[in-house]
Design a protein around this nucleic acid. Sequence first.
DNA 1: TGAACAGGTTACCAGCCGGTAACCTTCTTG
DNA 2: CAAGAAGGTTACCGGCTGGTAACCTGTTCA
Lengths: 112, 112
Amino acid sequence: MRHTYHDVEFCATRVALSLLAGKWKPIIFFHLFSGPRRFSELWRDIPRVSKKVLLEQLRQLEAAGLVERTVHNGFPPEVTYQLSTKGAELAPILRRLDQWAVTHIEGVVQIS
Amino acid sequence: MRHTYHDVEFCATRVALSLLAGKWKPIIFFHLFSGPRRFSELWRDIPRVSKKVLLEQLRQLEAAGLVERTVHNGFPPEVTYQLSTKGAELAPILRRLDQWAVTHIEGVVQIS
DNA sequence: TGAACAGGTTACCAGCCGGTAACCTTCTTG
DNA sequence: CAAGAAGGTTACCGGCTGGTAACCTGTTCA
């Protein structure tokens, strides 16, 4: 059995896009580009996302190996999320995509 | 009202990704990178996609301004799809994403 | 003693997205 | 005159994704 990118199951780009697919994932990414963030920080800084959904997206990113979750013992509980090496290597690609969007799509805003 | 990329509605990357979101779109893209293709060619060359769904994806890409549809009069009917300038400018970005996926995701295959 | 905070979890629901299968129209060819 | 090819369209359906709202656990502080 020969696999080519014609085969949707093995198309690298499709699989990559599926890891980024999710309403809040790009925003999470841009927040994590500048370093680790606590759960509550992300929840505060990303408007209109529910705890449940934010957590779901983070877990999916973690499962994909793009994000690492660290629990720091102590009180109050502190859990931080940060990009893995693999995840960080997406940064330049996402920035170029951002650039493309800003020049080609109206009403859209550049990352800070 | 201030818009920042923190606002999911205006996050450029999210909007860009939403244009590419669709099971068959990356594959369609890679087929169109090498030039215009007839509908029946795409349908023949992309395994397991139904006419209806392929057409849907093409129409969405067209609506997004990434693909142009041309009807050539004559018989048999001939309709070709090709990337717009805007769409073609995504090529290098998608190729980098493909590269990233090939080096980081197992079982995934590079575009030819 | 009970409120507040961090980081979750649970139940439940609506809408979208991709999927199958059959059908349509126009023209050409055997 | 029937079949076939090109490019669709239509009816219908199941599962995934994102959404709301309420609840839980453990510790500290007033």
